[in-house]
Nucleic acid binder design. Structure first.
Length: 255
DNA sequence: ATGACTCCCAGTGGGAGA
């Protein structure tokens, strides 16, 4: 079974590309970020017609997440219980015995901004939530747009990005703290091509020049780790007309 | 180079993203 994450940057715009991608890449489940749709406008009928059950949680203009799965998700939770948040960023559900957490981490804008303070508080709350979920569900995956480049090798120009948003020591410490819960970065379990990114700026011909960041991640629990067979970033959708600025990340699990 | 592009809501511009 494959699991995937994709920041689609507006599902209203990207729905045809999502359906095309799913037709070519059947998955057991996929989490989406930045749907940018209120719940009443979510295109569930089209997704269901493609053979996927879907749970969604959105808002106007920004954020918004969804969990698509072949068999449907059970015990779905929206956002982080106990963390008051007006932003729709997290959706969790159990799919085929795996606890799937799909998350759109805050961007943070700049290290000295209020949005960075919010990002840190959100990360603290997420970590507590994941810890509790892990205690109840040993087979767990945390995937989504983390808006954190964990290491310098995840950045096309680490000197220019040093200390910048996505690369600050505080954000990287938060990523390590998630690993400290007993999670493993599935992508780094395997030899990967150098300069592997999951996001490329729309500007500056960044994709053509392969100037990007690896900020979309799939973390797996200790119990799930032995089942991980492969993990890769699919750059093909970034070559579409009107692409998302993010590429899907896919993990393959043994049955 | 405080930019560049894309999306959204707005409303003939501006915020946000990363």
């Amino acid at each position: 079974m494959k699991l995937a994450t994709w920041n689609v940057n507006s599902l209203a715009v990207r729905l045809p590309q999502l359906l095309d991608w799913l037709a070519a890449n059947p998955v057991g489940a996929i989490v989406l970020q930045e749907t940018k749709l209120t719940d009443d406008k979510f295109p569930h009928a089209e997704i269901e017609a493609a053979g996927y059950a879907v749970s969604w949680f959105g808002q106007k203009t920004y954020n918004g997440v969804a969990l698509l799965s072949r068999g449907g998700a059970e015990a779905v939770v929206r956002n982080i219980p106990g963390f008051a948040d007006e932003q729709a960023r997290v959706i969790t559900g159990s799919v085929g015995g795996i606890r799937v957490i799909g998350a759109y981490f805050p961007n943070g804008q700049a290290p000295d901004s209020d949005k960075f303070t919010y990002k840190m508080a959100w990360l603290d709350a997420l970590r507590a939530f994941v810890q509790a979920e892990l205690a109840a569900h040993s087979h767990l995956v945390l995937m989504g747009d983390y808006n954190i480049a964990p290491e310098d090798r995840d950045v096309y120009d680490p000197v220019a990005w040093a200390g910048q948003i996505h690369c600050t020591p505080q954000e990287r410490a938060q990523f390590q703290a998630l690993l400290g819960l007993g999670l493993t970065d599935a992508f780094r379990m395997f030899e990967q091509p150098p300069k592997s990114w999951s996001w490329w700026d729309y500007r500056n011909l960044a994709f053509r020049k392969n100037q990007g960041l690896r900020i979309d991640h799939i973390l797996v629990s200790e119990a799930l780790k032995p089942r991980v067979r492969a993990c890769s970033i699919d750059k093909l959708p970034r070559k579409n007309e009107r692409p998302s600025d993010h590429a899907p990340v896919v993990v393959e699990l043994a049955d």
